[in-house]
Design a protein around this nucleic acid. Structure first.
Lengths: 188, 188
DNA sequence: GTCTATAAACGGATAGAC
DNA sequence: GTCTATCCGTTTATAGAC
């Protein structure tokens, strides 16, 4: 089997982790250079500008999340799917020093170009759409507490997940993610 | 009357705005220098290190928010107090380019010293405590939808507010703050 | 208190050899 | 593709004159 990871992939992977940890303005080509073991000029060969690198980081990260969501069987009960979504955010935390890449870039958005803003917006919309479907079904089944329209509740719920990974890292506990799930889950 | 604003106050005010806009790693002493009209070395006179400046920014910001919360009459109905809290976050947005200072620093937390982390944690806890009281009363009165314990629901709700200012700025609309309020408010 | 001057490291980025 | 070498602006911070 092939366990090779190209330099390009390594750069991208480390960039994603660094952004999730320290944000756009908190990492440099020099950081990547020492992590991957190539000179900064080699990184510029693959990603001419930092914005190019970050834009591709968003695309890669977003595709991975979308793929995970697509892998969640829609025939499962709504509350079970929500539980899997909570776990997805739990994995995002990693060793406890990372938050969602798009949540982080949303914080840095005023220092980023418009094409990155659009990519981050698309990530938000996709997550909200997925959650809206889950909430609508859970409301129908009486297993999830949904106040008002599912679309509005989904936007509030996604915001709660983004805010809670922030708080989870700040307080060094995953319990805050569970608070969010508990806030909409009826019964045990 | 005295409309004088000391250089020190001006530095602090602009620092708070810059952090809310661009984050810890997104502004510099040079930015402050051009905004206030003094050299960067003069800023170092008041705030020896950037961390000193940011720590005091958190203290000042936190005091202002605490003061606003204290000014909300506790004899008002819970849902009315919640409405005022939503408006507080709406003012935080300002001209639409700012988020909560402590939400921003929570995103930057991995690049900050421990004393700042503690100050940000204290801000989170104070807000969650205030919201827990409102939620408990609203649940009792049947005006607010609270699932599970008020303390847990309050942590989820505060996370939702933090996430929603992020989204409000990202999409350039205050509607996302209202989604959060609507998600717990019963009836019209 | 505020300035000039300067340090010393870091930032993203490019040219050209190999 | 990767390197060396370099550009040039930025960053936090300090020393010392006024």
């Amino acid at each position: 089997m092939d366990t090779t990871t190209s330099v390009r992939e390594q750069i991208l992977d480390h960039a994603i982790t660094l952004i999730m940890m320290r944000g756009y303005n908190g990492f440099s080509y020099r950081d990547l250079s020492s992590l991957v073991g190539v000179k900064t000029s080699s990184i510029h060969y693959y990603f001419p500008s930092k914005d190019d690198l970050v834009l591709e980081a968003v695309s890669t990260y977003s595709s991975e999340v979308q793929s995970t969501l697509k892998g969640i069987d829609e025939s499962l009960p709504a509350e079970v799917r929500l539980g899997k979504y909570t776990k997805l955010f739990g994995r995002t935390l990693g060793d406890g020093h990372q938050i969602c890449l798009c949540g982080m870039l949303a914080a840095d958005i005023e220092t980023l170009p418009d094409n990155i803003r659009q990519a981050v917006q698309a990530f938000f919309k996709a997550n909200e759409k997925w959650l809206a479907k889950v909430l609508a079904e859970g409301a129908q089944a009486g297993t999830l507490a949904v106040n008002g329209k599912a679309e509005n509740a989904a936007r509030a719920l996604f915001a709660a997940f983004q805010g809670s990974v922030l708080a989870s890292r700040l307080f060094n506990t995953k319990a805050r993610l569970e608070d969010v799930e508990a806030s909409v889950r009826i019964g045990r």
